[in-house]
């Protein structure tokens, strides 16, 4: 056996062992990282189903979803019309009302001010929508920022209508 072949064989053995050990160590690391991901009990609460039957037009409810408040408002025809009439260039964060709702009657948004995280008050402010008392941000009937320091419109969460009277958020 020449010097060359034996060195090659030796290197092959070392490299194989080293790679195999490294692969195992990498696989070992995953559980330690994954344990910090949301666990099963948290994920079980990741989506919430809401019964919409008790909500009349012009009424809002606030539910807790993933630890955050979510506004569910059954808008009146006036509010819907007002929202759709607004021109995009009037908006600090341009977004059409039709892009913010699946069913125009139901406005569903995360009730956290996009400025610094306070919860805006409903049916207040200069635009008939929401008003954040912390630093004076005004949102309209579509939850879009109109005036004040908040940079973006109120967030629309992922949701789906399971039927006419039930919506699943998240």
């Amino acid at each position: 056996m020449s010097e060359d072949t034996s060195v090659t064989r030796r290197n092959f053995l070392y490299i194989t062992t080293g790679s195999f050990a490294a692969a195992g160590s990498a696989a070992l690391a995953w559980p330690f990282v994954d344990q910090m991901n949301p666990d099963a009990s948290v994920k079980a609460l990741a989506s919430t189903e809401v019964d919409l039957t008790p909500i009349l037009p012009g009424q809002s409810i606030t539910i807790l979803w993933r630890g955050k408040p979510v506004f569910i408002r059954r808008r009146t025809p006036e509010e819907i019309t007002e929202a759709s009439k607004v021109k995009l260039d009037e908006l600090p964060d341009p977004e059409g009302d039709e892009d913010r709702v699946q069913n125009p009657e139901w406005l569903i948004m995360v009730g956290i001010c996009t400025h610094l995280g306070c919860i805006p008050l409903g049916q207040k402010g200069e635009y008939n929508g929401w008003f954040c008392p912390c630093h004076g941000s005004h949102y309209d009937t579509s939850g879009r920022i109109r005036k004040g320091p908040a940079p973006k419109n109120l967030e629309i969460p992922q949701y789906v209508f399971l039927d006419e009277n039930t919506v699943k958020i998240g």
Binding site: Q35, N37, D39, A40, V42
Partner: peptide, 13 residues
């Protein structure tokens, strides 16, 4: 028990 049942790989750790 929460670690054993709900935490990802909790039972193993």
């Amino acid at each position: 028990e929460h670690i054993m049942r709900d935490v990802n790989f909790g039972w193993m750790l």
